[in-house]
Design a binder for these strands. Structure first.
Lengths: 198, 198, 198, 198
DNA sequence: CACTAATCGAGACGGTACGTCGCGTCTTGTG
DNA sequence: CACAAGACGCGACGTACCGTCTCGATTAGTG
């Protein structure tokens, strides 16, 4: 699940598929209600109607479960790769904001970032959530540079880091202020930052 | 000192000032050596040559101690408020990078951000570290707008959030890549984003 | 065993029975070596090869563990209920002396008595240790009164209280003087006190 | 104070005599209200309107203070040494009961006995409380033996140990049942135990 | 009248034990 | 095999009490 392919186990009693969903939902509920500190192994198991052992059969550690609960899949830009740079950047900013501003995500984010130092695979998984966006932006930005729409020094990794970081800072420091006007301001500022000097 | 103004206790045995300093230094050492997980009440007390009780007399909980150890005072821009906008922004970016990239700070940052959700006063203290920079940038940016050097929509809070967030994302996601070239690229991009449309 | 009937837990991982025995033995060793003050949660756990949590899973607090270690079961009189009153009383006195004069018991007794004020259930458990002896003495004394061997005012609870109290006083005030001659003197005195007036 | 003569300190600020009384009264109050566990250095100082340092200037440790608060002087038999043996024993039993059955004494007794193992001087002080009674009983019992009123094996130390122990057991095990009838029963039993065999 | 010396209040100090909690693993019996 | 249940080792947490200490401020007797 998550980011890795699972070996198909054929033998023995099959896993109850409801437990996986119940656990992920339980994590989201607990995050929204009590924050990251409320996401305890025992609490998740109790809320999901199962036991800790069933959780550790599915995820190597609690943060991995939290990660999957909060970021179930890749960040998506929509299907706008052929759109204008303005719209692509707007979707990047807006999509990142949307992904990180759900109650569960906002509550989990700092905790996950902290655990990323302990679990290298978790760190990799979090980065991988942006790999698709990064590749797409890399390609699109290359075209924009070739077309003279973007500054030749512009780099997709810098761009994504800037956008993601700013959203993270917004979530951590001024949650509640990340409305659409905030997205518009950040988008405009980023776009100006991408423009060529002349 | 610390996070708040201190009540002027005149009575009772005065606190041993060496304990405070020893504890802060112990936290920095432990952070650099073993990361956030190594900053244990007992470990700090032992390394500082004191006891847990003496620590809890000074800080309400361990994260507060870590915060003070890692961010002892306000973020400083240097005395460059009268300098050109280019230099002011360069110093903001560089100073933020420097402050968050010390071994202790880099090790403590994710943990502190996570604990901020548990301790509201810690959250407030962390934000307050930027209040001076924020005020200074607000004033300087106002002048720049008036002088036509900056975009009329530019806001100091947005700017600081963007810079701090990008540095945080850099520390968390790509530590080791935040060299001076990185600072230069971010500075240039931010400056372009601040320029008026014309 | 212990102080109460145990609920028949059928589910979950069963408790490791060796831990219980190891803890009780550890307490007895520590009592004999360092007295009541040496019976620390951490010390007991370490000596028993387990952890504090495992102890607190079995006993509500340390004194309960000490109590069970020192007084594992009811005080026994031997199987002498049909013997002459002289011998019954002699066994009561001797048995009480023996039970309270083991190194562990002598070391634990004052501490346990003191903690009994804090833990009412511990107080009840300690009293219950004498219930069997009390019932037996009550029956035997009734027969003796009917046979004219004992004073009609004699009561088993008074008798047990007197014997136990005297032994406690001996242990606390003049430990080391409770030899067999002491037992004989007390036995003779108690027996005279039980005799009818004529 | 208490049992020892004090060196006459002439110089320096004299001790406030009210503190001593206030501390003793505070201990008694705390014992009656919250038991031995409530007698904390800080609690005693606060209730007495003074500080811990003032207490430790007067008593070497807390149990010594408790001891003096609860047993301010020697156990007294009244002036009945020339009375009949019946009355002397009755006064011994009754006086011991009275001394150990005050709320403060009953609450402090097990704690004090436990601490006696830690502080040898406290142990000695407690025993000394009975030295007068012991000497008096020794003399009176010798006369009784000579007069044929008492068993030639009777010993004052055994007698006192028996009476004190029984009262202690009564206080610890069945507090509230030590009424005058209880005293009468114990007195009668003890007296029978003292009688010569014929 | 200053000087000295011990007290007073307040509270921090080192030390140590307490009982609780969470993590991730394990060991049962039952499907 | 999975599952429910819950004990296991580990280790940190924050609190409490002990008896001592260090302050600045009093409060006598002495020189």
């Amino acid at each position: 699940m998550g980011t890795d392919v699972e070996a198909p186990r054929a033998t023995g009693r099959p896993r109850d598929p409801r437990i996986e969903q119940a656990a992920l939902a339980a994590v989201r509920d607990l995050l929204a209600e009590g924050g990251y500190a409320a996401v305890t192994g025992a609490a998740v198991a109790a809320r999901a109607g199962t036991t800790k052992a069933a959780l550790y059969r599915r995820w190597p550690a609690l943060p991995h479960l939290v990660h999957e609960a909060v970021f179930p899949g890749e960040l998506a830009l929509g299907t706008n790769l052929r759109a204008g740079l303005d719209e692509v950047v707007a979707r990047l900013v807006g999509g990142t904001r949307d992904a990180l501003c759900t109650p569960a995500a906002a509550a989990a984010l700092p905790g996950l970032l902290a655990e990323a130092g302990t679990y290298p695979d978790l760190h990799a998984s979090m980065i991988r959530r942006f790999s698709g966006v990064l590749a797409a932006m890399d390609e699109r930005l290359g075209e924009a540079i070739d077309a003279g729409e973007a500054h030749p020094d512009a780099r997709a990794d810098d761009l994504v880091q800037l956008v993601v970081g700013t959203v993270i800072a917004g979530v951590l420091l001024t949650p509640g202020a990340l409305d659409d006007a905030w997205v518009d301001r950040l988008t405009a500022s980023v776009l100006r930052g991408l423009r060529p000097d002349r």
